[in-house]
Simulated assay, not measured.
Amino acid sequence: MSSNSSNTKAVAALAEELKQKGMTTFKEEFPAKIALLTSLLQNELLRLENDAVLPPESEVTPVIPPISSGEEKGETSAAGGRRKKRKMTETQQAAASVIPAAHVDAPSHSDSEEESEDEIGHLNGRHGHAHWDYTHDFAVPCNKTIMKVIELLRKEWKEAVELVGCVKLWIQLSIPPIESGGQFHVGVQEEVIQELNRFEDVAYNYLESPTKYFQTRAKLGAKLSRHRSVYDYRQSLLEADSLEYLNLKMAATELRNSYLVAYDLLSKNEDKLSIKDQSFGSRMTI
């Protein structure tokens, strides 16, 4: 019996401690965060023009060294062309060992062979006057500016989830017993909790948003690396960076505004959020 009594007292003490922590968070932490985020919105990283956020030309447009136009077609760096020529020579040698020399005609290319060589030449950038070597690696690095902005805001999103959870717990622990008849107070408390839930969802969604951005950019970067002559992939990647930067600026503003709305709602209804004459221990006996 004494064990149950001590456990009840320990739980009641913990509940009182969490309630006090929630009230302190609302009265001290929320105003501090509003001031911090207001100053953060003036940070130079969040006041850049969209063009300044985009990566440099060298990171999204491959510099492909040209093949010297003086090289002979059969002596180019295209390994496929050399292999094709060597294979044809071996075939001709085998045929010459069976057919008398008088009947061996000069080597000639069939239409299919010419089309095959033409295709190999096109894939290696030797079509017409475009002498490009596409065998060099091309890396698409992350957007360094957007990475800095994400790291700047990620800490605030995480702390917002923790602080809102702390205030929500204070209000939930302050809901009066059912038989006390304080239904008006309960209605106000539920409305406040709904607003805090919305605030919490906003912070969670912004915590997940960088993952989606990186996945989208990774797919575009992979396609750009494989298809370097398709400039639409390059433009798509630039548009993704520009859109993400705009979303991050809006995220910083919305986070500050969510703190402000929540603090205003809590301040106006503070007297209805906590019933001072009700203890946690008495509520446990219901």
Rank of each mutant, 00 (worst) to 15 (best):
residue 75 E to K: 14
residue 146 I to Y: 09
residue 122 H to D: 10
residue 114 E to N: 11
residue 107 P to G: 05
residue 195 E to I: 00
residue 116 S to R: 13
residue 276 K to C: 00
residue 274 S to F: 13
residue 119 E to L: 14
residue 267 S to F: 00
residue 106 A to R: 15
residue 219 K to F: 12
residue 226 R to T: 05
residue 114 E to R: 12
residue 258 S to H: 09
residue 192 V to N: 12
residue 222 A to F: 12
residue 99 I to H: 04
residue 260 L to V: 05
residue 141 P to C: 02
residue 116 S to N: 10
residue 155 K to S: 09
residue 213 Y to L: 00
residue 117 E to D: 11
residue 271 D to I: 03
residue 93 Q to C: 02
residue 30 F to M: 12
residue 70 G to F: 09
residue 40 L to A: 14
residue 265 L to W: 00
residue 14 L to D: 11
residue 234 R to K: 14
residue 109 H to Y: 13
residue 152 L to G: 03
residue 77 S to H: 08
residue 200 E to W: 05
residue 173 L to Y: 06
residue 222 A to W: 12
residue 180 S to G: 05
residue 136 H to T: 05
residue 82 R to F: 12
residue 8 T to Q: 09
residue 189 Q to D: 11
residue 80 G to S: 12
residue 204 Y to A: 08
residue 38 T to I: 02
residue 111 D to N: 07
residue 201 D to F: 01
residue 145 T to F: 01
residue 33 K to I: 05
residue 40 L to P: 12
residue 243 L to A: 11
residue 139 A to H: 13
residue 39 S to L: 10
residue 219 K to C: 02
residue 58 S to W: 10
residue 40 L to N: 12
residue 241 D to F: 06
residue 51 D to Q: 12
residue 224 L to E: 13
residue 191 E to P: 03
residue 240 A to P: 10
residue 2 S to G: 13
residue 228 R to A: 02
residue 114 E to I: 15
residue 148 K to Q: 15
residue 147 M to T: 11
residue 217 R to F: 09
residue 285 T to H: 13
residue 247 N to T: 05
residue 242 S to V: 01
residue 108 S to K: 15
residue 152 L to R: 07
residue 239 E to M: 04
residue 219 K to G: 08
residue 21 K to G: 05
residue 115 E to H: 08
residue 190 E to W: 07
residue 235 Q to P: 00
residue 232 D to P: 00
residue 60 V to H: 14
residue 51 D to V: 13
residue 135 T to W: 01
residue 213 Y to D: 00
residue 231 Y to I: 08
residue 81 G to N: 06
residue 269 N to Q: 06
residue 199 F to S: 00
residue 276 K to R: 13
residue 148 K to Y: 04
residue 252 A to M: 04
residue 44 E to F: 04
residue 137 D to L: 08
residue 148 K to M: 08
residue 254 E to I: 06
residue 223 K to I: 01
residue 77 S to R: 04
residue 176 P to S: 07
residue 130 A to I: 03
residue 52 A to Q: 15
residue 215 Q to G: 06
residue 28 E to N: 15
residue 157 W to G: 02
